[in-house]
């Protein structure tokens, strides 16, 4: 596995990006599209950008957001308005500008040595919840662009209710298999998204070695997905969400406890550069 060391990769840029569009896509959720010649061209699924929401000291630090989509000239993010920074973002209009740093982090597809995600006959299972869904959309699109059949992509989305199954329609347009779950049963399975995942893994005939699981969402969900993956012996990658300051390995603030061969049995990985994507089994969940 090619492990990224803290430190900057040559493909990280600071850009002043112009807002191309902003659209409300669900209650409290927005898609913001920014013009960016450099960052977008280098964006990999699972990587993120650091957005400075204000030109003042309030809020102070940049905010991390995963790519929802990116092409050679622009990229978009899908965000949930939860506090000061995202509230400022929600008021931006076409033509406004933002200072953005990226692409940050490693991205999905860690297992380069066994072909990463480029292997054709593989089944790609992606499990997302809440604002963990956007990077999975980017990843699905990228796989299809890389000639992987949409029939080999299985998306499992979970949400509180129907209105929060983010980007469901766009996933449908990709023609991937879609499994939905809502807490209130307003759409799909009533309950956690991990149930359809487990049902699926119990029913299929593919050998576990041909399956890959990718997950991003609330920590309890990713922990459950990681356990299920281990039970079925399927390799699993999780994208963690932890509070961050710099986003490029300078502050050592975004620590994640991971297993280590050393005497203590664990160490603190820096999520913004060694992650945010980790092998599920490497994370010490509690």
């Amino acid at each position: 596995m090619k492990k990224l060391k803290p430190g900057l990769k040559p493909s990280m840029y600071k850009e002043i990006c112009k807002v191309l569009s902003q659209e409300k896509v669900a209650p409290g959720h927005f898609v913001l599209t920014l013009e960016s010649p450099k960052i977008s061209k280098n964006a990999k699924p699972g990587q993120f950008v650091q957005i400075l929401c204000a030109d003042s000291t309030e809020p102070l630090l940049p905010r991390p957001f995963s790519f929802l989509d990116a092409d050679s000239k622009k990229f978009s993010i899908l965000y949930h308005m939860v506090g000061k920074g995202t509230e400022i973002l929600s008021k931006l209009k076409k033509g406004d500008t933002l200072s953005v740093l990226g692409p940050c982090g490693n991205g999905f597809g860690l297992r380069i040595e066994d072909g990463g995600w480029r292997i054709g006959k593989r089944q790609y299972l992606m499990v997302g919840g809440g604002v963990g869904i956007p990077p999975l959309y980017h990843f699905s699109k990228q796989l299809i662009k890389n000639k992987i059949s949409n029939k080999n992509i299985y998306i499992f989305l979970g949400a509180r209710d129907k209105s929060l199954l983010l980007h469901e329609k766009e996933f449908k347009k990709l023609g991937v298999h879609l499994y939905l779950a809502t807490d209130d049963g307003s759409c799909g399975h009533k309950g956690f998204v991990t149930q359809p995942l487990e049902n699926f893994l119990s029913s299929i005939l593919h050998p576990p070695s041909s399956i890959r699981i990718y997950t991003c969402g609330p920590t309890p969900m990713m922990k459950a997905v990681s356990k299920i993956a281990q039970k079925f012996e399927v390799p699993c990658e999780v994208s963690v969400e932890v509070p961050m300051a710099c986003g490029f390995g300078a502050c050592l603030g975004c620590a994640v406890t991971v297993r280590d061969e050393g005497s203590t049995g664990h160490r603190h990985a820096i999520a913004c550069c060694e992650g945010p994507v980790f092998r599920g089994e490497s994370i010490v969940w509690d």
Partner: peptide
């Protein structure tokens, strides 16, 4: 030094708290 366990940082009004633990 391994440093402190997470959570290590939090933003505060016009500032931040850190407890990196000298990793």
């Amino acid at each position: 030094r391994l440093g402190n366990p997470p959570q290590r940082i939090v933003e505060t009004p016009s500032g931040m708290l850190n407890a990196i633990g000298l990793q």
